[in-house]
């Protein structure tokens, strides 16, 4: 369509959606409510709403390789797959085709490399790493968005349904508080006279 020749009706429809869309939706509780379901889903083992069982298993395995569980929790404990499942249904729905095709491509790459039916989730961890290394180069668009969703599931406000038990913030040492008082860190500990809060870090 030549956008310069849109009818007035089309224009009003578009402008209406512009104003009624992004800006007004920002402060509705819809997203938060939907995403809160993600944490319920994780705790009670509910089925996925967007992913197929296979897709969910693959994304979960992918997330667990990006930020693995070692002596501290990783993306799996943060609820990455439950977060992505709900996010792709709601505020990131436009990414669903990219993610779906990307997961499918990851399986194709797995089958090509390791034979069998190519279930990424069933591969050994070092095999999964090989596939991810290839996919990062071959499908950077998918990799970027899939990785971004894993990061969101770790670092975003828990209202979005990820960051279960604040595990993402624990990894980086982010203390969740609405306000802080000086001293803020080790190197400014002697800079604030008696005005600082003795309970603050360091």
């Amino acid at each position: 369509m030549d956008q310069n020749q849109r009818t007035r009706r089309e224009f009003l429809t578009t402008s209406g959606s512009a104003m009624g869309g992004a800006w007004l939706l920002r402060f509705t509780p819809l997203i938060a409510a939907t995403q809160a379901c993600a944490s319920d889903a994780m705790r009670s083992g509910l089925p996925f709403t967007t992913f197929s069982e296979r897709e969910g298993a693959d994304f979960d395995a992918f997330a667990a390789r990006l930020v693995p569980t070692d002596d501290t929790p990783g993306a799996r404990e943060a609820g990455a797959v439950q977060f992505a499942d709900r996010a792709l249904e709601t505020f990131l729905s436009e990414l669903l085709p990219i993610v779906r095709a990307g997961l499918s491509g990851m399986n194709a790459r797995a089958a090509e490399t390791f034979g069998g039916i190519g279930a990424f989730a069933d591969l050994a961890e070092d095999q999964q790493d090989q596939v991810i290394t290839a996919v990062e180069l071959e499908d950077p668009n998918f990799f970027f968005f899939a990785r971004a969703m894993v990061m969101m599931s770790l670092m975003a406000e828990p209202q979005y349904g990820g960051n279960q038990d604040r595990v993402g913030w624990q990894i980086i040492g982010f203390e969740d508080s609405f306000a802080y008082l000086p001293p803020f860190g080790f190197y400014d500990r002697d800079e604030h006279g008696d005005g600082g809060d003795p309970g603050a870090d360091q």
Partner: peptide
Amino acid sequence: SPLFWATFDNPMPGMPSWGPEFKRQLA
């Protein structure tokens, strides 16, 4: 802030963008 750090600030040049070493970078 945390999400920006994890998504865009990390990794530093030459550092991996995922995996155990990335997790150490995050920390």
